[in-house]
Design a protein around this nucleic acid. Structure first.
Length: 868
RNA sequence: GCCAAAGUGGCGGAAUUGGUAGACGCGCUGGACUCAAAAUCCAGUCCGGCUUACACCGGGUGAGGGUUCAAGUCCCUCCUUUGGUACCA
């Protein structure tokens, strides 16, 4: 007979809803625990078995923590903007709002069906204007801020204007903001600028800005994609081309150093921290200026090996480098233009696939500042415009790529670090190499190892004013705009005088206009461009005509801060109350998919740091502890997919075995973070376990099993009970749910075997079971005579004294091999153990005729005799 | 190529600090109950040898080496799988 999960699961779900059992108060005397799931994108396909894995894990921890006396914040919401809903609208003309609401309703039904203990009063939906009002509000905060490198933090742009008015830009290193166009001005100079001029200067400083950059444009989707999104869509068969477009960017690069540093204090999977570190890609080196033969312009290069400057025998520019135009000679013009046109057609990815070196000489020459030699300047697509300065000094003796290129095009190779054979291959050992052939009238690196040589070279170029030490990052600014309808409108006006104007906070939310059609605009603008009434406005303040920004925000925007809105989800006056933020933050545990290792998790950290600098949040980092749930494969060990027909639908599993069995199985499969296959047999296994639990407590008449009585405990039952309380608690704390479940099975097996079923351990066992299988536990608790939910019952205590076994098994070894086992009293002194070992018949057989040369005795564990 | 994580029975996995490898579950085998089946319960189940049996012996945690009285666990080399990355100067 199976137990009536069909009846009891909906019953308790209704009870929890009606009683708002899991509503959380802000504050109080209890210690707090903020335990967060990555909220889902509510797709039309409904919940996948992968979702409940992470959700069940956190749910168990939350239910346990409540019993341990914590005030637990455990919310859920919907990441509901996004391309799938919009694409569906393009096909059907059904407003994405409608499908989004339907999908959310379905997801909510499925999540409730699993008995997850969320505080539903805190549900958020990123597409709700009351939510995206605050996404836009953060956008404005970021737009109206700049990063002050002197104190390494963001400040309101008004502070910068004040400074400009007082002392111009004299105290600021403008090259960090304006690059080569650094336009230095005095306070007077600032005041004399026109509105537009001032606007343009400030644009260089803002954390959010518009730039014309080559982007990944997808014609079929009618939108640009971030570099990191390209792979996802090309896999689905969409093609992407590179074209320069004006796009909104966020200056995440300003935070590169802090993102790197603060990651050290996080309890995250090493692979995830590692991926972020690689993504940021910090490297230390120098920027060096090379003079051009016959031109006044200089070329700047970035190198991590300034110690090899004497070995730079040629230079390579990226095909898109602006100076290519200037230096190309008439003889080389045709070849250079041809090569540049070819390079333009290739994406960065395609350039990488064909690793064979190509390139053409420009005919121009640069002067190596150390050797004074004229070195030829080539262009090649192995130099990327997007990294460093888009130009390199080529040192074929000590760089593999330069070596390959030099070999192919017969360029000179000079050894400047001794230790290898530079004719054969580049010698790149920076730990052992010693500088040679590296001296001129002013400086010599000869005899120095890498670190010293590098330092001396940087000192020299700095003194000469032709370069400086520099830290370079791979990380690029965040491409923030998308040509979509179904996203947060960017609250910016383009005024007719060419300036941008941010909306005032009081004008938020800037709502999406309703559209009749959801087709792409036909231009590179989003469908919002078609909403002419919405787009064209008059700016009240200046009276100028204006156009609204038609780009919308990327899907990451809403998820960059949703964890903060949960703290105070209904607040209409503020993004959240400061005291609530101080009470709840930071997040104690964050669980979600590893696919968000760099994107979501880095963008969210970035926004958090800006909000921290501006004083809105009190912690440097949002997510103190992070874990990823592993992917659940299909029964055939392959990734679940519709085409393979191995997708498991939670609705079917719950229908057949119930939510408790589903939860239990997902946790019993193996370690949370590992990849593991679904197994219907496995579900049946835990389902049988729940059936055993039911029959242990309940007789055929649905009454309490009459064998459950207040009777004295046997020592065996007492020990297994206390061991279970301890192990299940410990295992939940370290998210080792599979072993916790195994221990509960051991307990139930023991009690089933026993004639006596003492109420004093069976009653608290229901509490131990409850975090894992809450419905059956509530029902048993009820039948045991309680009239309230067990959600806040205290977690049972265990008595460590009861765990100690009075007898222990001692392993007797000879030469490390087990020869016998004996049961002895605990803490038997070593000399007695030794005596018993020597007396053991089987041990003696192996000692026969041999000499004992060493005795290893570990109390309560083993005796090992070493013989010869 | 580079970086990271991981390789344990027929299967999913356990072994938290160097100290009894294989907990728990699945599957399988045998038995009980039943007219029969399902369900349930009991027993066995790493591989091999020997044995009526209890026992006993040998081997065993991807491969090979090392440290140690003792290694799934620590060190070195290699192989495989998964994830990330892709000329980042």
């Amino acid at each position: 007979m199976s137990y009536p999960f069909h009846e009891i699961e909906p019953k308790w779900q209704t009870y929890w809803d009606d009683h708002k059992t899991f509503r959380t108060e802000d504050g109080g005397n209890k210690p707090k625990a903020y335990i967060l799931d990555m909220y889902p994108y509510p797709s039309g396909a409904g919940l996948h078995v992968g979702h409940p894995e992470g959700y069940t894990a956190t749910d168990i921890l939350c239910r346990y923590k409540r019993m341990k006396g914590f005030n637990v914040l455990h919310p859920i919401g919907w990441d509901a903007f996004g391309l799938p809903a919009e694409r569906y609208a393009m096909q059907t003309n059904i407003h994405p709002r409608i499908t989004t609401v339907q999908n959310i309703n379905n997801f909510r039904r499925q999540i409730k069906m699993l008995g997850l203990s969320y505080d539903w009063d805190r549900e958020v939906d990123t597409t709700d204007p009351d939510y995206y009002k605050w996404t836009q509000w953060i956008f404005l905060k970021i737009y109206n801020s700049w990063f002050d490198y002197r104190i390494r933090k963001a400040l309101p742009i008004t502070k910068l204007i004040d400074e400009f008015e007082q002392e111009g830009c004299s105290k600021i290193d403008c090259s960090l903001y304006c690059g080569d166009d650094a336009c230095c001005f005095t306070a007077d100079g600032w005041k004399k600028m026109t509105r537009l001029e001032q606007h343009n200067v400030l644009a260089n400083f803002r954390l959010c800005y518009i730039a014309e950059i080559p982007v990944n444009w997808c014609e079929a989707l009618g939108t640009v994609l971030a570099n990191e999104e390209v792979a996802e869509w090309t896999e689905k068969g969409y093609s992407v081309e590179r074209r320069p477009m004006k796009q909104w960017m966020m200056r995440i690069t300003a935070y590169a150093e802090r993102l790197l540093e603060d990651a050290k204090e996080l309890d995250w999977p090493t692979s995830t921290t590692e991926m972020q570190t690689n993504w940021i890609g910090r490297s230390e080196g120098a920027e060096i200026e090379f003079a051009l033969k016959g031109f006044d312009e200089k070329v700047r290069v970035f190198t991590t090996r300034p110690d090899t400057l004497f070995g730079a025998t040629y230079m390579v520019l990226a095909p898109e480098h602006p100076l290519v135009e200037t230096i190309t000679t008439t003889e080389q013009r045709i070849a250079v233009d041809g090569y540049r046109n070819q390079a333009k057609l290739k994406s960065e990815l395609e350039r990488g696939i064909d690793a064979a070196k190509t390139g053409v000489p420009t005919g121009g020459f640069a002067i190596n500042p150390a050797t004074k030699h004229e070195i030829p300047i080539w262009i090649s697509d192995y130099v990327l415009m997007g990294y460093g300065t888009g130009a390199i000094m080529a040192v074929p003796g000590h760089d593999e790529r330069d070596h390959e290129f030099a070999k192919k095009f017969n360029l000179p190779i000079v050894e400047v670090v001794a230790g290898g054979d530079v004719e054969k291959e580049a010698y790149i050992d920076d730990a052992n190499g010693v500088a040679v052939n590296s001296a001129n009238d002013e400086v010599s690196l000869n005899g120095l190892k890498f670190e010293d040589a590098k330092k001396r070279m940087i000192d020299w170029i700095s003194a000469k004013g032709i370069g400086k030490g520099k830290v370079q990052y791979k990380l690029r600014d965040w491409l923030f705009s998308r040509q979509r309808y179904w996203g947060e409108p960017i609250p910016i006006l383009h005024l007719e005088d060419g300036t941008l104007k941010a909306l005032d906070e009081s004008e938020l939310p800037l709502r999406l206009p309703d559209l009749q059609k959801f087709q792409p605009s036909g231009t590179t603008e989003s469908p919002l461009a078609l909403a002419t009434d919405w787009v064209n406005v008059i700016d009240k303040e200046t009276g100028l005509t204006a156009r609204r920004e038609t780009n919308t925000m990327p899907q990451w925007a809403g998820s960059c801060w949703y964890y903060l809105r949960y703290l105070d989800p209904k607040n209409n006056d503020r993004i959240f109350a400061a005291e609530k933020e101080r009470y709840w933050m930071p997040i104690d545990l964050y669980v979600g998919g590893a696919e968000h290792a760099v994107l979501h998790l880095m963008y969210a950290r970035f926004w958090h740091k800006v909000l921290y600098d501006l004083g809105y949040v009190s912690t440097r980092e949002p997510f103190m502890k992070l874990r990823h749930q592993g992917i659940i494969l299909g029964e055939n060990m392959k990734k679940m997919s519709k085409s393979l027909g191995n997708v498991v639908n939670p609705d079917d599993v719950v229908k057949e075995y119930g939510a408790d069995a589903m939860r239990l199985f997902e946790m019993f499969m193996g370690p949370l973070e590992e990849m593991k296959p679904w197994s219907t047999r496995g579900v049946e296994g835990v389902f049988r376990f729940l059936g055993r639990v039911w029959r242990l407590y309940i007789d055929d008449e649905r009454r309490l099993n009459p064998d459950i009585k207040s009777v004295p405990l046997t020592p065996e039952l007492e020990r297994v009970y206390h061991a279970t309380v301890k192990k299940v608690g410990d295992d939940i704390e370290r998210l080792s749910f599979n072993t916790a479940i195994a221990q509960m099975m051991i307990f139930v097996n023991e009690v089933m075997k026993s004639e006596v079923k003492p109420r004093q351990i069976l009653e608290p066992f229901v509490i131990i079971l409850a975090p894992f299988a809450p419905h059956i536990a509530e029902e048993l608790w009820h039948i045991l005579g309680h009239r309230q939910s067990l959600a806040y019952e205290p977690w049972p205590a265990f008595d460590p004294a009861k765990l100690i076994e009075t007898t222990v098994e001692i392993v007797l070894q000879v030469n490390g091999k087990i020869r016998s086992k004996i049961a002895v009293e605990k803490d038997m002194p070593e000399h007695q153990l030794e005596a018993l070992c020597l007396a053991d018949e089987n041990v003696r057989r192996h000692l026969d005729g041999k000499q004992i040369i060493k005795k290893v005795i570990v109390k309560n564990k083993l005796v090992n005799l070493v013989v010869k």
